[in-house]
Design a binder for these strands. Structure first.
Lengths: 231, 231
DNA sequence: CAAATACTTTATTGATCAATTGAATAACCA
DNA sequence: TGGTTATTCAATTGATCAATAAAGTATTTG
């Protein structure tokens, strides 16, 4: 049997390794990066742009995420594409979000403020969308940036990035009910889209959660730029 | 609708809050405390003792855990009893462990070393113990310290802390199969108990996981010092 | 009631570590 | 070669950690 102090030594190293993961999760900037990478792979530059950081700083943070094995990198020529190394990374981030919402009153208050003018009537859970999809009585609109749509989306959805929404309204059938969705619980893209659509007279619902949550529940997804919804 | 920069401000504060949780998880010492508190509530002094830290240092770490709302404190006179504020805290720690085992080769190697002389033949999953319990053909022995047993244990188990095991062997029926368990995947208490028991000629199996994992799966638990196993 | 005791928290210090920026470097491509 | 993308480096500032010493707080004792 292993010596007592050798065992202690190994355990210390084990906890140090786990703490590396914790440390990687212990920065608001890095959590923001993880949240973005939950949508799709990203280049350093795009990540920097989306998160309002300098490229150098983004690269540094990605380095610590890589050291903790939370992200992988793939290089194409001069461009580096980062992605989460495992679906479990998103799930851990989701777990931390849930934990925060459960235990930290501050967080509940902040989300309340973020969505102060959201009409909670229009929110629907995944289950409801699934039955609507069976009845084919609905247009699902993904309002995230196109690269995120291409990396994966709810099966049957079409991509109309929020920025293009005003000019692409004609593509949306006014007779069907519209369901919009975006990145997840702290993204306001879908709220803005819903507001725009409602002002134009559409009948709009909004998914409670975003694509990564859909994916992690094993619900049907599509990828690429399929224009014809899978039946 | 909320102004663009006000939204940015709120989001930053949200991520800062989540990062607080991450930071709290980003220290080997604090993870060790969380692991202990997953078993039962503990006083500062006992935690310091179990984790080989000074009381002052332990108190500091508990303070940051409390700031992140991961632990709660209850005072009885001069004594402070700490506990996890929610089962989700343990589950998050469990998630990080799983993530580490999945992504970090170092961790796999370290656990391999920690259990180098474990006979994996004797390990059984929860499901198997459940069927054995139905057949009533088994003695389940909890070898954790007694306070942890009292705070919660597998229903039907009896408490024989590892330290007392040699002197309490007569209490264990030699005709039944014995199943030992302890704190979880990185605890060696059950391994040591199994070794002692096997040397004395008992037929021993060992649970793959510990009590917190049993509890979080909603399996039947008991608490206090019940001497007669619930039927 | 004051003094002593037991348990816990806070303050201080010095050392180490982390975050950000801007400049420099490296790698690739056209 | 010049331009683009990413990483590294150096430097500043701020945060964190562990250890010791000091201070609080409730309980018990003389």
């Amino acid at each position: 049997m292993m010596a007592q102090d050798e065992e202690q030594e190994v355990k210390t190293q084990l906890y140090d390794q786990f703490a590396l993961i914790g440390k990687a999760l212990g920065s608001a900037r890095r959590l923001e990066l993880i949240d973005l990478l939950s949508q799709s792979e990203y280049t350093v530059e795009k990540l920097a742009e989306e998160s309002n950081m300098s490229v150098a700083n983004t690269s540094q943070h990605l380095k610590t995420l890589r050291a903790a094995r939370l992200v992988d990198v793939r290089r194409e020529g001069v461009v580096a594409y980062y992605r989460l190394s495992d679906e479990a990374v998103f799930q851990t981030w989701q777990m931390i979000r849930d934990l925060g919402e459960a235990c930290i009153a501050e967080i509940e208050w902040l989300t309340g403020r973020l969505f102060q003018d959201r009409d909670h009537q229009r929110l629907i859970p995944f289950a409801e969308l699934l039955t609507m999809l069976e009845e084919a009585s609905v247009s699902v609109v993904d309002v995230r940036p196109q690269r995120e749509f291409e990396a994966g989306h709810i099966q049957g959805a079409c991509s109309i990035p929020l920025k293009e929404l005003p000019s692409r309204l004609p593509e949306i059938d006014k007779d069907k009910e519209v369901v919009v969705y975006c990145r997840g619980p702290y993204s306001t893209l879908a709220d803005k889209a819903a507001k725009t659509l409602m002002a134009k007279g559409y009948s709009v619902r909004q998914l409670e959660q975003g694509f990564p949550e859909w994916r992690t529940q094993g619900l049907p997804i599509g990828s690429g730029l399929e224009l014809i919804p899978t039946s």
